[in-house]
């Protein structure tokens, strides 16, 4: 739990990127990712353009590179999978550092890694420059169904409450000498998970009661949903525009 005003992923700054309305940033990141993913297989140079565009955003938003690198850890399981590709793929083989690898697998792994990494970095930048609360407001502006927005709102509000509850249960278990050493003790953990589920369910009922008591009728009232101006959209469009142009140019080059 962070002690300050904000959420862990958010990096407090007053920059152009931070100030953009969340809905613009959401659409920009989505478009950017789609453009990256649809890059033709043979093209390599567009990735430099994508990376450059993201770097420019990071500099504008004053998000330091080490911070981005640290958060890229979430990508690790994906990287492991990508690294397996050249080993298990078929086709002509090449020797890399003495290990025989599939040529097509190597290329596929490289492209997969590049696309994945760009998507992850784009999301990291979005999370670092937008408060979770604002992301929800943005989704609401984009006509995301009310029910889904409400579910995410509650998830955001209660994730720390549930984590704290889980922590207390762990302390209670360990205070009575429990340590998860082998699979045989999975039963205890399963019971804990079940108990946690029931507690959450009961809390859900109590919250619903509290909501009804204050006149809840199916809609969460929203506040200060800032309308995006056309200049905001234009500024936000810079990132995906660069990516779309690069991707389209690559397709054009392939087509000839």
């Amino acid at each position: 739990m962070s002690g300050g005003h904000t959420h862990q992923l958010y990096v407090e700054h007053e920059t152009l990127v931070h100030r953009l309305p969340p809905q613009c940033k959401l659409i920009a990141v989505l478009t950017f990712v789609i453009a990256v993913v649809s890059t033709p297989r043979s093209a390599v140079w567009p990735y430099a353009v994508y990376a450059g565009a993201l770097a420019a955003v990071a500099v504008l938003a004053r998000i330091p590179a080490p911070l981005i690198l640290r958060r890229m850890v979430v990508e690790v399981p994906f990287v492991v999978f990508a690294l397996l590709l050249p080993v298990i793929s078929r086709g002509p083989r090449v020797d890399v550092l003495g290990v025989s690898m599939s040529e097509s697998g190597l290329a596929a792994a490289g492209i997969l890694l590049a696309k994945g990494t760009l998507g992850v970095v784009a999301s990291i930048l979005l999370a670092a420059t937008t408060r979770p609360r604002d992301l929800l407001l943005g989704l609401q502006h984009l006509r995301m169904p009310q029910l889904l927005v409400q579910i995410m709102t509650f998830m955001f509000r209660y994730v720390e409450v549930v984590l704290a509850e889980m922590g207390r249960m762990r302390v209670a278990r360990e205070s009575r000498g429990f340590r998860a050493r082998n699979l045989g003790q999975l039963r205890v953990l399963a019971h804990s998970a079940g108990a946690l589920f029931i507690r959450c369910f009961e809390r859900g009922e109590r919250v619903h009661l509290a909501m009804l008591s204050r006149g809840y009728s199916g809609r969460l009232p929203t506040l200060d949903g800032a309308q995006a101006r056309s200049t905001d959209w234009a500024v936000a469009a810079c990132l995906p525009a660069a990516a779309v142009l690069a991707s389209a140019a690559a397709w054009f080059a392939v087509g000839r």
């Binding site: 809390r203 919250v207 509290a210 809840y216 969460l220 009232p221 506040l223």
Partner: peptide, 22 residues
């Protein structure tokens, strides 16, 4: 339990919940 009562992301929105429903 105030965690049951305060279900919105910020204090302002939570206090606004009742009157906004009105």
């Amino acid at each position: 339990d105030p965690d049951d009562q305060l279900f919105m992301p910020t204090v302002r929105e939570d206090v606004a919940f009742g009157p906004a429903n009105l």
